[in-house]
């Protein structure tokens, strides 16, 4: 009994250390998924609290597991809470940009376009191009096949290509997302 209690105390210390050291990085992923700071914090705390109950099994390498919970919770929460989210079809008029602000504005447009992707495609884009996970790691995180990851990524890039906000920029440039 004493040993068990000691193990639990040690688990708690490890868990708290993980929360302290890694949660800010996970919060960035949560934000890219939700594009809402408050919801991202909510999502992160929920994922961490779920992870605690499996901590003894995952403490040797907890981050992939927590990230998996984060993404899957995001998917289910999207259904429960955020299904009122609607992409805006009324895009604001494009401002006249000087060179200094153009890059930031373009990145904002692209980030907004990513935010208009379906949740699963958005998750694949974030995991592949922000978290830099491989296709296999992305598949393991999402609980699907690598073929599904490829297809979702292809579909996501296809949607970004024709996103109205980005299409306007491409009128002034050549090339496309490859």
């Amino acid at each position: 009994m004493t040993a068990e209690r000691g193990s639990r105390v040690s688990d708690r210390a490890d868990f708290d250390e993980f929360v302290g050291s890694r949660s800010q990085a996970l919060l960035r992923t949560a934000y890219l998924l939700t594009r809402d700071h408050a919801l991202a914090e909510d999502l992160l705390q929920t994922a961490l609290s779920k992870a605690w109950f499996s901590w003894s099994r995952i403490e040797s390498r907890p981050e992939p597991y927590v990230r998996k919970i984060l993404v899957n919770t995001y998917a289910s929460w999207w259904r429960r809470r955020w299904n009122g989210e609607r992409p805006s079809h009324d895009l604001p008029d494009s401002p006249v940009r000087d060179d200094a602000t153009a890059t930031a504005a373009e990145r904002h447009d692209l980030a907004a376009a990513i935010g208009r992707l379906p949740k699963r495609q958005r998750a694949v884009v974030v995991l592949r191009y922000f978290e830099d996970l491989s296709e296999a790691e992305t598949a393991a995180t999402l609980g699907c096949s690598t073929g599904t990851v490829k297809s979702q990524l292809s579909k996501a890039l296809g949607k970004l290509r024709i996103d109205p906000a980005l299409a306007e920029e491409r009128n002034e440039q050549t090339g496309e997302l490859r």
């Binding site: 890219l32 980030a111 990513i114 191009y129 440039q173 490859r178």
Partner: peptide, 16 residues
């Protein structure tokens, strides 16, 4: 805003 590098940069800027 045409390459995967742009996509990565946009995600990083948004995460920042």
């Amino acid at each position: 805003m045409n390459t995967i590098d742009d996509l990565r940069a946009a995600l990083a800027a948004d995460a920042a």
